[in-house]
């Protein structure tokens, strides 16, 4: 389980980039690829190997009209899932 103090980073060999053919963000990983949904895209844009989960939640809370607790739960669930699938390290 990710904790608010964890600092998420893309694992080696993982690239997050915009695909102009599909007009959407894609997460490219060793022999896998993910099409993150809109919420995951906003989270992943803030993953830089320096910001802790708490800072990511703070940032999103200023921009999105949702209770902080809900945002935090979303961020942790998204990152946990991508960590289990080998794209993110926590």
């Amino acid at each position: 389980m990710g904790a608010v103090s964890d600092v998420p980073a893309f694992r080696r060999g993982v690239k997050f980039r915009f695909d102009s053919v599909r007009d959407s963000w894609v997460l490219l990983a060793p022999e896998k690829l993910f099409m993150p949904d809109d919420i995951a895209v906003e989270i992943l844009k803030l993953v830089d190997g320096e910001r802790a989960i708490k800072a990511i939640v703070d940032d999103l809370a200023t921009r999105f009209d949702a209770p902080r607790g809900e945002i935090e739960a979303d961020v942790i669930a998204t990152l946990d899932d991508l960590s289990a699938r080998g794209a993110i390290q926590l």
């Binding site: 894609v26 490219l28 690829l33």
Partner: peptide
């Protein structure tokens, strides 16, 4: 790349 392929193996 032009038709949208993302990964080449």
């Amino acid at each position: 790349a032009r038709i949208g392929i993302l990964q080449v193996h």
